[in-house]
Simulated assay, not measured.
Amino acid sequence: MSQITIGIDIAKLKFDVARLAEGKYKHAKFANIAEGFAEFVAWLCDFGDTDQRLCMEATGAYGVPLAEFLVEQGYLVSVVNPAQIHAFGKSELSRAKTDKADAKLIARYALQASMTAWKPLPTNIRVLQALTRRVEHLLEMQRMERNRLETADSTITSSINTVLSILDAELKATRQAIHDHIDHDPDLKRQSDLLMSIPGIGSATITYLLVALSSHHGYTNAKQVVAQAGLAPAIAQSGQWQGKTRIAKTGDARLRKALYLPALVAWRHNPVIRCQCERLKANGKNGKLIACAAMRKLIHLAFAILKSGKPFDPTFSLA
């Protein structure tokens, strides 16, 4: 029996699906709400399939409710990096760009890919992620209002200051909610205390690391986390030509951003990372490359510390 794959292209208000079996497609679209989820499952049941794989892109908040619903119904669902689908489309010289065509593309990708079953975030990690992203949004709104204040007419400065006061209060409340959430969860509290022992890592960065290094991801080594963060080196070399080595950037941009300033602090105050950075500097490496290396080292340290359950030890040498 041939493998049956279902490609799902997610949008805000609806999602397109393409069922691929024996080289033929069946297409449908449903509303991206609970009723649409139920209609989609009924549509799948009409085929009477027992062996099928459902694949969708990681599209953030728009796709998570559907993925969670499908997992609860017992379906094998893979949520893959959109960059992988895009690269697969380029390998096919795909030209069409519609929701229907994208669903078919995802179904074809699922047919040849080695996919892993997606698992929803544990409740405690999902709450922490939501609170952390809320802080990001509040900081962005605060920055925008402060920029407006610099050139604002005097008639609206009072209004802007009022909004800034509200944002400041909400930031404090949300950060306190993060602190309380971690403090009241024994496992998160234990991991947080371990991460806090790393020089250069502060409470703001710890929240990102707790989400990124959650055991639910199933990482077996730190290199996988580095790749997921988009910090793995992308080497450019062909024959005699040697291009610049950059980071891949195909991963968690939030984690990269959260690690940048801590990496600079660790460069000065973390003995393990300072030694590495000074060695790279002596070899003529530029500051940006050194900072990226420090970010990777922080991930390695955090992964090793959480895995071992032991706090930072400057004499510990990573393999």
Rank of each mutant, 00 (worst) to 15 (best):
M1T: 13
Q3K: 15
Q3W: 12
I4E: 08
L13D: 12
G23I: 01
G23A: 01
F40T: 14
V41W: 09
L44G: 10
R53Q: 06
R53G: 07
C55S: 05
M56Y: 00
A61H: 12
F69L: 05
L70T: 13
L70N: 14
S78F: 06
V80M: 03
N81I: 01
H86N: 15
L93T: 11
A103H: 09
R108P: 01
A113S: 11
K119I: 07
L121I: 14
R133M: 08
L138Y: 04
L138K: 13
R146V: 10
L149Q: 15
L149V: 10
E170Q: 15
K172T: 11
A173C: 04
I182G: 07
D185A: 06
D187S: 09
R190M: 06
S192G: 09
L194C: 03
L194N: 11
Y208W: 09
S214R: 00
T220Y: 06
K223H: 07
Q228D: 12
I235D: 09
D252P: 10
W267N: 10
W267Y: 09
H269F: 09
I273Q: 09
C277N: 08
N283K: 15
N286D: 10
N286K: 13
C292G: 03
I305D: 08
L306Y: 02
S308K: 09
D313P: 03
